[in-house]
Structures are given as C-alpha cells and as structure tokens.
Nucleic acid binder design. Structure first.
Lengths: 335, 335
DNA sequence: TCATTTGACATTAACGATAATGTAGTTATA
DNA sequence: TATAACTACATTATCGTTAATGTCAAATGA
C-alpha cells in the first residue's frame, strides 16, 4: 500500500537490500542476471527512492533552496526557471519559496524550512531595504556556521555571502541620460521607499547635465501597480500637471503610472514620457510600449548559480565574492 | 561545523538523546530542570530538527506538493499563497513546483521529485489539454496505489482524483450575455487550441440570441501576450477590420489582443470591445480597464485545500469528488 | 595441490529522529 | 514492612538508504 522500498524489492527477488541498492545504481560486484531481475522488480513495484532517507545517510540532499520575493513577477519566474535548469545540469534539485519584502514571520519560517530540509546551499534574491537587518543577517550567520554556502543577489551586499549585484546605479544613469537626450528637462524619478541606488544614478546624470532632478518616494510596501498609480495621482493633485518625463522604479510601477496618467486624461509620451526598469514582457504590450532597461536573464542566472556551485564543490573557499552585472537600454515608444 | 543534532545537545547536557527529543517537544516524563537545560543547549547550538530524519521515522512528511502551470500568472501566485496559508494552519508545509502545459520530461521529473520526497498529498492545477493522457494519468495511478491523496483543479476531471472545477461554461455564457447585452452582434471568441468549455458557453449564449458566433483558434502553446497579439493581427489581415467585440480566452490574451488592436490604430472599446477571463490585477490598470470575469480566490484555495485535507485526515474515504465553482462578472470600460 | 585472488553476494553500522520498552530510585498504598 | 505505583530517566528498535566489511565458493597461479 505504501510506497515500495528496497526491502520490498529484496524480498521479491530474494537478495539482500544492499544488493538491490547496488544493482539499481549500476555499481560493480553485482551479477548480470541479478541486476536484471532487480531492475524488473523495481519497475514492477513502482519503486522510487526515498530522498529523505538518502539525504540522511549521504549527509547531503543535492538540493538547494531558492528564495525570492515577488515570485509573480515574470522576471523572477524566468530567473528561477533558468536557475533550476543550470542546477539540474549539475545534479542539484531546487526548492523554491517566495518571500515578501517586509521581513515577516513567514519569511523566516520559509527559510527555516529550507534549512530544516538540509539544503546544501541557499540562494536569496530580490530582498529590499533590510540589508544587515537582524532576521536575514541571523539566517546568513547560521548558514555560515553550518557551512551552507549562500549566494544573494538583487540586494545590497552583506559581506556575509557571495553576491551578484545588478548595477542599478549605472542603469539609472543610462536611463536618465536617454531621457535627457530626448530633450526632457522636468524629469521625476518615482522611487520606492528605501531603495536609492537607482535614485543616485538618476541624480548623477541630472547633475552632470545641470538639471534639477526630482525624486518622489511614494513610501509604500513595494512597487506594485496600485501603489504606483496612487503615487502619480497624488503627484498630479499636488503639481496640477505631470512632469515632462517620469522614470519609474520598475516596469510594473511604470505601467501603474501610465495608467494613472491616462486616467487623468494625459497622453504618453506626448504629455508625459515614462520609462521603467526590468524589461518585463508586459511592457512591450502596453500602450504605448514601454521604454525600459534590462539584461540577459540567462547570463544572470548562470552567474548566480556558478557562484554557488563553486562553493558547493569546494573550488572556491575564499571570502565572500561580489560581482556586478550590467543592463542595456530597450528604447520603445513611451519615452 | 555541520548542523547540530539531538546527539550534540545530549552530549552537552549529559542526558540521552531521547530525553532531549522529549524535552524539546514538551512531552511528559522529563524533569523541569532538565527540560530547561536542554532547551538552553538547543538554542545555544542553533539546533534545527532534521525534517528528513523526522519524516523517515514518522512515516509522514507533513508536506504536500503543489504543482501548477504558469506560475508567473498573478492569479496562480495568489492561489498558491492562500493555499500555503491554509495548509500551514493545519500543520502542513507546502512544496511548490511549476509545470508547463506541454507535458514535457521536466513535468514528470518535477512531480517525481515531490513523490520522492514523500509528500503526504498532492495538488495539481491548471493543466490543459492532456486529461487522461499517459503521463498525468500514470502519476495519478501511482499516487493512488501509494495511498497519496490528490486534488486537481482547473483541468477537466479524470475520475482518479478529487477535482475542483471552475465553471467556465457558465462563465463564458455570462460573459457572452453581457457582451450581447451591450448591443454587439459581430462577436469573436479568441480561443486557445484544445480548450473548448469556454467556447461552448460562448456559443450557447450566441445561439440563444440567434447570433452567429465566431470562434478563432490561434493554436499556439498557451494564451500568452504575444500569441494573442499575433492572433489578432492575423484576424485583421484576414478580415480587414476587427469584430465589434472580442471575448478572449483569458485576461492576458485580452491584453495582447487590445495591444494589437491599438497598434493597428483601432480604439477599444469604440472600434472593438474586449473582455477576458480571470480578473488579474493588470487588467484593472490597462487602458482601457478590462472587463472580465473572476472569483474569490480565497474561497477557491480553501475549497481545494479542504478537499485534500479531508483525505489526509481520513474524514473522507469515498470515491473521487467533484466540485464546481462559480465566477462573477467584473464590468469595466473595455466592454 | 594448496595458497591466493576474484566474483558475487550477505551482514553490519550509520545517518537523525521518534516510539516503545526497560530500569533505577523514590513515594505511596495495603 | 512489603509491594505496588510513579518519576525521570536510559536503552533499544525502527524508518529507508548507503558505505564499509565479511564470507564463501569458484577460478587462478606457483
């Protein structure tokens, strides 16, 4: 009734449990005919190895934990899938969990759960605004003391784990220069609360062109559609009209902003140009298609995975590494 | 160096392993002072129970597997999160994997992996077009023979597992009636390849009003933005102008269709009204806001969970059950 | 021919946790 | 006072799997 075990196969074939184990793994010291009979019996019983038992005795699970925020963001999904694929090529399974930006009890429990399953490594990404804060820091410390390698990305580095950064300063700088190059002067940066790398790049570009940049923080939980729309509505109420151009924290918020603009009767880009970050698929299908900045997600996932894999196989043992990834402009009609 | 075990705590405190186990679980037969000392030592060592070992000896993992397609669809995400929450309330953890519609090797491997981790139950959802096909059927059969309860949803029932259906026939019927009620007569249903429940509901409503319905199948892998846009472009090329109204297979394809319409210079809804299914968040922020049909996702997730939970705790042992869930119109500006 | 190698298996121990059972020492009961 | 009952532990067995040894007969070599 329950799932078949090696013992069941052993009984059926009339050999010892160990012989079954070795036969199924094509190890030496097993007769040809015995091997055949074992495999047949295994197939007949629908045998499936118990990974829990295996990871117990092997002292490794061949599993890595992947924890990201905003898992419904298409960009994340694409990343997760690529990463799963790279890991699989190296013989690792991936357990994915989704985190929230606010460091809730749920986040901690979800990560604890991965550790309780004895993952061999951990990848944590896209967490904002809580670098070095107690909860994440404590997890990282525990991982270090247990010798579990961790790679983080999309979050300011902590020094406690390998880190792949996306160069958002440069991205914002590039994006701002593009917007400025279009001839706009009254440019507003719509920012999320505690994230300022992009803002700094924006301000840098503005300063170099001696334009006074405006950064609006809408101070909400995350850069979602609704928050962004609300922020633009508030902006309009305060200033009476939109800026000439808006750079949004990401594509999703850019779309929220465009929606609000249109709702109030403004045209994009004629009355207000809009650009975002991430290059999500939806952006290309909005009206107007969204100008944005993004990167090759395959390269990104591969970079993150290799960082972790080098720790897993022991080929890298030094102090925490730090890599930076570049983004490229995608110019469409919104700006 | 490695993670702390009960044995480590036992050694530190000077008691037996079993005493430690019982102390941490607040079971009787343990002295007050011993209990304290054990807990202190556990905290000091950063002890975290090994779930693999626990599930081995308990013969249950308190974990259920959740497999859905299109995990980047916001609707799915919301569902997954609610389900996780309900399961947690019942003491179950959830392992989530994402499937593809085409029944690839990856799908099977991912499900096998869940089974190999000895999940206590399985929830599979949003798989199209392969009901009763070998791969899924075989998995369901294996689950049955291992006594692992399964609940499926968003896919035609198989008779082999409990099933929660969304009443897409009725939904399409409602939606079509709304569109007809708006006065449109030349209405096209943009369908995905192998899914016809919605189409049937649409045609039924059309027939009742003696209007000739048109159903276009764009025959692609999934109802994504790009496929939908391509389909509408093809429609325009073929007919020279859009229909008066379009009902799309889902909100995502509705947006793709609207994007294509606008790209060719047509206005929505003036030149062509559009409606979709699902009520995704993006729809409310599109220009124009999308008319759609959806349901309370909390209720849906709870329904699915309870079906499985009743099997897990043995309160339901009969043959496969089948439930149907109703959807409600969300009328916005696009139609 | 007898020691030695080799092939093909069986046996044992271990992983970490838990349940069932065992056992001193104390307390309560007859 | 003898014995049962209880307290607070320790011991042992078990889950499914794998690695490290053990074992025995046949094949090989000197």
């Amino acid at each position: 009734m329950a799932a078949a075990t090696l013992k069941d196969i052993a009984k059926l074939v009339g050999v010892s449990v160990n012989t079954v184990s070795r036969a199924l793994k094509d190890k030496p010291d097993i007769g040809l005919e015995t091997r055949e009979r074992v495999k047949e019996a295994a197939a007949a019983l629908g045998y499936r190895p118990n990974l829990n038992a295996r990871s117990l005795v092997l002292q490794k699970s061949s599993t890595i934990g992947l924890a990201v925020t905003e898992a419904d963001n298409p960009v994340r999904m694409e990343f997760c899938e690529k990463l799963r694929s790279y890991a699989a090529d190296c013989g690792y399974r991936v357990l994915t969990i989704s985190l929230t930006h606010e460091w809730s009890k749920g986040n901690r429990e979800a990560l604890e759960d991965l550790l309780a399953r004895r993952v061999d490594g951990l990848i944590i990404g896209y967490i904002w605004g809580l670098t070095g804060e107690q909860p994440l820091g404590k997890i990282l410390e525990e991982c270090r003391s247990c010798n579990i390698p961790v790679t983080v990305f999309g979050t300011p580095e902590t020094g406690m784990a390998d880190c792949v950064e996306i160069d958002f300063f440069d991205s914002a700088y590039q994006l701002a220069n593009h917007v400025i190059g279009q001839g706009y002067k009254d440019i507003a940066f719509f920012n999320s609360s505690a994230h300022s790398t992009r803002e700094s790049g924006f301000l840098q570009a503005m300063a170099e062109h001696r334009i006074k940049g405006r950064a609006v923080r809408w101070m909400t939980n995350g850069a979602g559609l609704e928050n962004a729309a609300t922020a633009m509505t508030a902006y309009l109420k305060k200033h009476g009209r939109p800026p000439e151009a808006v750079i949004a924290f990401n594509d999703i918020s850019a779309i929220g902003i465009m929606a609000a603009l249109k709702q109030h009767g403004y045209r994009v880009p004629e009355d207000c140009a809009v650009a975002g970050f991430d290059n999500i698929e939806f952006g290309a299908y909005y009206d107007p298609p969204l100008t944005t900045i993004g990167f090759d997600r395959g390269v990104f996932a591969r970079t993150v995975w290799e960082l972790l894999f080098n720790r897993l196989n022991g080929s890298e043992t030094g102090p925490a590494k730090r890599l930076k990834l570049h983004q490229e402009l995608v110019v469409r009609k919104s700006c």
